[in-house]
Structures are given as structure tokens and as C-alpha cells.
Write a protein that binds this DNA or RNA. Structure first.
Lengths: 153, 153
DNA sequence: TTGGCTGCAAAACTTTTGCAGCAAT
DNA sequence: ATTGCTGCAAAAGTTTTGCAGCCAA
């Protein structure tokens, strides 16, 4: 199974991004359309700083503070998730809120998405059968650490 | 199954902590014995700041910078792991490097350990059978989000 | 119109770094 | 005696906050 194939997504149009924001109850300002669009365009779970650089060309006056505030409101609205990373100083964001797992590449620091409904079901059923006495699980995600393999052509 | 029962560990003696450090090829200074001992005593995957507070009573002159440097060297030596958290500004540390999973309580922000060799094997076998084309997994850990249940007495 | 959002900038907070002296081996 | 570690303090980096003005609804 190819990992890269799993994270393939098409860049959404500004109109679609506006729609996402409006549906979430947020104002579709020019800045937020760019920020959310930029996050969607960057596949590798970028930091706020990286999103800021991504949109800098299109909106040179857009401030980093606004990026932070916007990303925060996206998270609250459920449009975006924060990704848990042990290394690295800055938080990283994921525009994909559907259930999926993460592959952490120790070589490139990339975070690749890994979607596998069959695995989800397996874990889900195991946890349900196992049962916790004093913990009620809501969701789970698997953090897989390893290395990308570069195959010779 | 009880969650709290899973994370029960006995506080090690200073002599044992010294031994851990020496075996890892690190100098067993008074500060490091306190820092590693403090981390082992704090069950809830504390921040560097929390470890510093923990040892402050016994060593008032021990500086926060030393705690950071010590924790770093512990991580490099493999004595300690950094825990991946999406929320919260500071990194959190785990003195337990044996394979285990984490339960994140959304109510109390606690991080509980969850050890389950049966689950490990299940996932391990699934991933081996599934196979990745261009990713070589080394290890994995399950992040389970949910809430602690407080049962009436 | 108006309430949320932006930009700017300061502040708070976390983590890293440099270096002289000290202590564990 | 060496060499790594400590303490102090400054610096770097990340994130939050306050506020006046602006803009999407």
C-alpha cells in the first residue's frame, strides 16, 4: 500500500473555503480564506509560522498574530485539529478532521496521513471488548514512527 | 479493567536512580538524581517546570535551565521520552520508555498510561500484514482521548 | 450598524545557549 | 586531572493579549 496515495487531496477553491468557514459559523474574511486555504494546500501539517509564510505572497500585510488567532478559532470551530508532536518547538496543524492516523518520519520530520477504516474498526472493537473501568474513550489515533523509504527508480 | 492500576509504580530509591544514570553513561550528579527521581515520582507526565517545582524543596538552588539540560540528556540517552501533546504550551516528559499507550483525559488534562500487550500484538500483526510500500514503521503508540469516570463511593 | 476580525506591538511564556566554575569519575 | 555538569543570565523562539480601527454580515 502506498502512503503518499493516502494523503492525496485536491486544493479547494476560494469559494469552497468560504463555504467551509460560513458553515462553521465564522466570518469569511479575506485573511481567513487565505489562511485556511493555505493550510489546506500545505499537506505536511504545518506550523502557524509556515502557514504565515505560505500566504505572505498573496497578502503581505497579513500578520502572524492573525494567523494564530484564526487557527485558534478554526480549532474551536472544529475545522482544524492540532497535531500532537513530541519534538519540535511549535505546534502543528491539520486541516483534516476526519479520523485518521499519523506516520512520523524520523528522517524528514514529515507527518504523513494514514487512513484505514479496517484498522479503525479493529481497534474500536478491541477497546469496546476490553472495556475500561474508569475511563470513557471518545476517539483514538495511532502514532506510527518510522522512516520513509526512497525507492530507486 | 482499571486504568489507575495500570500506571501504579513504586518510587525508586536514590541508589536505584543513580544506577539508572550510570548505566546510561551519564554522570550521577546530585541534581540529576533529584531530577530523574522527581520525574519518576510525578506520575502525570510533567513539564520541565513541574519537575523543577517538584525538586525545589530539596534543592532550592537547582536552576530550571539545568532541568531542561538534564531532561534533554535523559531523552538522548533513552532514559526518558517526550510525550506528544496537541494542547498545552509546554512539552511533557515520561520516564517510562517501555511500550505503552496514553489516555488523554479531556476533563483533567491528565495523561494516563495504558499498557496492553495483547493490543500491541494485534496492531503489530495488522500493520505487518497490511504493509506499507514506502514507509518502514519502527514503533507505534495509541493516543486515546476521553474522560476519566469518577464513580460514586 | 455592529460585532467579530485585523494589524500592530508589547508581553508572557517556553526553551536554548554561552560561559566560568565546580564536581563526579 | 579531566570532562561533563551546574548556575546564572541573556537570547531566541513561540504564543497570547490589548486595543483602536475596519469590514463582513
Amino acid at each position: 500500500m502506498s502512503v503518499s496515495a493516502l494523503s492525496a487531496t485536491s486544493s479547494p477553491t476560494p469559494a469552497h473555503v468560504r463555504d467551509l468557514l460560513t458553515r462553521a459559523g465564522l466570518r469569511a474574511t479575506q485573511q481567513r480564506v487565505l489562511i485556511l486555504g493555505g493550510l489546506l494546500a500545505l499537506r505536511d501539517h504545518p506550523t502557524a509560522e509556515q502557514v504565515h509564510r505560505q500566504v505572505a505572497a498573496e497578502a503581505p500585510t497579513l500578520s502572524l498574530g492573525t494567523v494564530y488567532k484564526a487557527l485558534d478559532s478554526f480549532v474551536v470551530a472544529g475545522l482544524v485539529k492540532r497535531v500532537a508532536v513530541a519534538d519540535g518547538a511549535a505546534r502543528r496543524y491539520d486541516a483534516d478532521c476526519s479520523p485518521h492516523h499519523h506516520l512520523f518520519c524520523t528522517a524528514t520530520q514529515e507527518i504523513l496521513d494514514y487512513r484505514d477504516p479496517q484498522l479503525d474498526q479493529l481497534i474500536q472493537e478491541f477497546l469496546a471488548a476490553r472495556g475500561f473501568e474508569n475511563f470513557q474513550p471518545h476517539s483514538f489515533s495511532l502514532h506510527i514512527t518510522g522512516e520513509k523509504i526512497i525507492r530507486p527508480a
